[in-house]
Every structure is written in structure tokens, then in C-alpha cells.
């Protein structure tokens, strides 16, 4: 079953078209990685699906709910606030810069949304938060504040914060780009664990080796379009498109050398 259906997504800023015409599906339990050079529209696409940016035209369907109901004067018409809210509850997003709330403890960062948005009791929310923190290897940091944690720890807290709302689907917007290589490993390990649990995920990343190892499918984007799409072994091992080859060449020279 397709958890996410994106059809003919277009996004323009005034006259500048940053996403041209993108269509793809993500099935339940699938891990999709989106790779591509900076400025290719990967993050914008993710932000459009997560309602942080208005899409210009096209349609997005999340867990069977249509975000866009039609088109009027060449502009997408959004569904009612209730539907959008429902969609929002089904998905989670992990940011590049974590965006933890600095004035809340680690525990409260995780419990605040379940308590005040989902109206779950504080005890229940805290029990779940502790369980998630345990899973992230951060049980001893519950009372700390974000500023006392390393970048990798902060990102793990932000993943726990997203998971606390029990999303059907999780999006990652370059989750390791703000981290040094050593800390990157901790995050990738967490995402791999989620993949093993069959969490449906879309990951925008620059970590090619990771994308190759963890994904069921990979999309290569450039200039606002999907240039190539395929299973990792195909896309990384035997890319068809010239642009994909050119892009991956840099990485195969560096990243994959040690693997073989």
C-alpha cells in the first residue's frame, strides 16, 4: 500500500521554479532515500510534503488523505484544516538543525507534544519518552537541557521527539549534515534500527554509503526533477543517466573505496 503518493509536484518562488514535476510513491515499511546536489530541490520537496511550504501545483496524498483538493487559477487548493491536521499527525519530520526547544529539558521536549496536542496523560507520555530515550541510549539525559548535549545526542532526542507522536511515517531532512563524521554514525545507527523495525521513512541525505545500505529505493534529484530512481544496487552500481554517473563518481572515488 502506498503511504505517500506525490503526483506532479511543482513549487515556484515567484518566477523561479525549484521543483518542476515530481511524482513518486512510498510504500508501507519502505525506506526511500533522496540524494542529489545542493539546490536540487530535495529539502524543498520534503518541506512541501510536510506543509512547511505551500506547493504551487500537483497533489500529495499521505496515508490515504489528500492534502490538495484541486487547482484554482494555477494554484493548488489545500484540503480543510481538519484534514491537514490529520495528515500532520500521521507524519514526523527530523530537521537538519534538530530544532529542539532550548528552554525545555530533554524529557519535556519529547512529552510536550503528546501531552498538549494528543492529550495523552503526563505519566503515560513520560513513560513512553523514557522508553524512547532508552532506545536512543540517552536514558540518563532525560533531565538535561539540549545545550548540554552533543549534536549527535540532540539529534537522537529530536528523533525520539518525532517518534513520541507515533507517526505512520518519518521524514529526515539531512539529519547528519550538521554533525561531524563520528557523530554521524550514531544517527545512522538509529535510522538503521528504525528501518529494521519497518518504519516507513523518506531520508534526504548526502551520506551515499548510508543511503546505499539502508534504503529499499533511491531517488536522485537534480535541478528540481527526479533524474533517476531505482534500487540502491542499480542506482549506485550501474547508474543509467549521465548526470547520475557524474554525481556519483565523486562519491565512488571517496566513499566506496574502503568498502571493497
Amino acid at each position: 500500500m502506498a503511504m505517500l503518493e506525490v503526483r506532479n509536484l511543482r513549487k515556484c518562488y515567484d518566477d523561479l521554479e525549484v521543483i518542476s514535476d515530481i511524482s513518486f510513491d512510498v510504500n508501507e515499511g519502505e525506506v526511500l532515500s533522496v540524494i542529489g546536489p545542493s539546490g536540487s530541490g530535495k529539502s524543498t520537496m520534503l518541506r512541501c510534503i510536510n506543509q512547511l511550504e505551500r506547493i504551487t501545483s500537483g497533489s500529495v496524498c499521505v496515508c490515504g488523505e489528500n492534502m490538495i483538493t484541486g487547482e484554482k487559477n494555477g494554484e493548488a487548493v489545500y484540503a480543510s484544516a481538519d484534514v491537514l491536521k490529520k495528515i500532520r499527525r500521521n507524519v514526523g519530520l527530523v530537521f537538519q538543525n534538530f530544532n529542539l526547544f532550548p528552554h525545555f529539558s530533554v524529557l519535556r521536549n519529547i512529552t510536550e507534544a503528546p501531552v498538549s496536542v494528543l492529550k495523552i496523560s503526563k505519566e503515560q507520555a513520560e513513560a513512553k519518552a523514557m522508553e524512547l530515550l532508552g532506545k536512543m541510549g540517552l536514558a540518563d539525559k532525560a533531565k538535561s537541557y539540549p545545550c548540554e548535549l552533543s549534536g549527535g545526542q540532540q539529534q537522537r532526542v529530536s528523533i525520539a521527539r518525532a517518534l513520541a507522536l507515533s507517526p505512520q511515517m518519518l521524514f529526515f531532512d539531512e539529519p547528519t549534515s550538521a554533525l561531524d563524521p563520528e557523530l554521524t554514525g550514531e544517527i545512522l545507527a538509529v535510522i538503521k534500527e528504525l528501518a529494521a523495525e519497518k518504519m516507513t521513512m523518506v531520508i534526504v541525505t548526502h551520506e551515499m554509503a548510508f543511503a546505499r545500505d539502508v534504503s529499499d529505493r533511491v531517488i536522485f534529484m537534480d535541478g528540481g526533477v527526479i533524474v533517476e530512481e531505482g534500487v540502491p544496487s542499480e542506482l549506485f552500481g550501474n547508474p543509467k543517466n549521465e548526470r547520475t554517473k557524474q554525481f556519483l563518481k565523486r562519491y565512488s572515488e571517496n566513499t566506496f573505496k574502503g568498502d571493497k
Partner: peptide, 12 residues
């Protein structure tokens, strides 16, 4: 800005 975006994503 990320604070507002995080709040929005979490459904506040």
C-alpha cells in the same frame, strides 16, 4: 525560524 517549524510539525 526552526523553532516555529518544529512547533508546527509537532502539531502545536
Amino acid at each position: 525560524k526552526g523553532q516555529f517549524e518544529a512547533a508546527q510539525i509537532l502539531g502545536f
